[in-house]
Design a protein around this nucleic acid. Structure first.
Lengths: 233, 233
DNA sequence: TTAGCTGAGTGACTACAATCACATAGTAGC
DNA sequence: GCTACTATGTGATTGTAGTCACTCAGCTAA
């Protein structure tokens, strides 16, 4: 399918590029759609594209030697993934799979590399991105160190709460929350355990579900206390 | 203490820089020594230096909210740490502590940033470094996903084995192996559990200790089988 | 030599999360 | 509306790693 420069400029990281550059990139890029559970990027393969997510939600996952799934991060619309090879030409370290039906734009890595030569700003942005990724991985790693399981779940939930709800301890809504299974995979837990923690949170009126696509966090303050360990479940 | 350009050029990443640049950097840098268990970098603080390790061994660690220590990575002589702020001016995400007495060279981040402007090569190298860090964090994360504890320990040990011993399945030696405690912290285990796994490995003549500073891996093939799960302990 | 420290080895006990095996609820497709 | 999934909820059981409480070994520094 045809990619227009307008489509590309919908992505915050590409928006600041000069129109001519966008036009050229658009020519070389392609739209790809994936069904739920589709494999967007394959681990161990030298992917030659950076994948920009237009619609839907992606997850970076890995598999342990014995086949167990390990959740690494989520990708939201407007964001991108598979950029690691931009820096070291190495293979994609983890799988990226579609959690919902998704629409993506694949931009060839080599073209993007050329663009970074002329636009140090983009290079800088990529660097910041990568740094953010390291920070996220580090935070996630320390989350896994928590010996208390419900605290782990609450911390993860807390990370999904929007920034200003976090700041002001307001009640808030998480859109398209991950399934219990997806959370379990992120936190090295079994699905049942996550389910049980949610059960307690719901009976305590701390969170409330509303269909599959909404999760109300009614009592942010309590969630925060549970997340930082000042209160036990 | 005075830093000489020669000292700086001992670091592979700085070696390719022009002598004039090295001389300038040397002027602005300083040698810092730390005792075992000394805090080299503090989490949450905007450290204004990149720390190059000359002698000894460092470990990146984090602490969970409840105070449990979480091991992230090791830094060996010639390598550096604390470079994340180079990319996003953000705070240091994790602590770096000295596992042994260490000698480091602190190079001001701002000076280094100026140098990267004139030396894209250094910038590229930093990018590769960061990419490698992401890969390492990802690998470590999937290690933590292993439900079988002894496999986890064996995998970690396997990562400590030198590359060519890994390739040719030769017996080899690990210098200054981490203590059981350090391994436990890396792998989210208790010290006792690591101890028990080592006990089994030793009675099976797969590894053998030789003082505190040497660990012989006598049966690399067996260690590999245990690491990849084709054999159970 | 002795004291003091850190690292390592080990048994007993226990808590707790995984697993299994279901039931039930929602949703999406036809 | 019916069917087929996928997601979720829940009890019973069990394995296993954490914890505690020691001992012992090795190093270093008075």
């Amino acid at each position: 399918m045809q990619v227009t420069p307008e489509l590309l400029s919908a992505f915050p990281s590409l928006k600041p590029l000069p129109p001519a550059t966008l036009a050229r990139l658009a020519q070389e890029s392609e739209v790809r759609k994936f069904a739920r559970r589709g494999v967007v990027m394959t681990a161990g393969v030298r992917e030659e594209f950076v994948c920009f997510l237009f619609e839907g939600r992606l997850q970076g996952v890995d598999f342990t030697i014995d086949g167990r799934e390990v959740g690494l991060y989520f990708v939201e619309p407007g964001d991108f993934c598979g950029e690691l090879g931009m820096f070291d030409h190495g293979p994609q370290p983890e799988f990226v799979i579609a959690l919902t039906a998704v629409v993506t734009v694949f931009v060839p890595m080599e073209s993007l590399r050329l663009v970074t030569m002329e636009n140090p700003m983009l290079l800088k942005l990529l660097g910041q991105r990568l740094a953010a990724r390291v920070r996220q991985l580090t935070r996630q790693r320390s989350l896994l160190g928590l010996p208390n399981i419900s605290q782990r779940v609450c911390c993860q939930l807390w990370l999904l709460v929007s920034d200003d709800a976090r700041q002001h301890l307001q009640s808030s809504v998480i859109n398209n929350p991950p399934t219990h299974m997806e959370i379990a995979i992120m936190l090295n837990l079994s699905r049942e355990t996550v389910s049980r923690v949610f059960q307690i949170l719901q009976t305590r009126n701390i969170v409330r579900r509303d269909g599959t696509s909404l999760l109300h966090v009614s009592d942010s303050a309590a969630l925060k206390r549970l997340a930082d360990g000042s209160e036990e479940l």
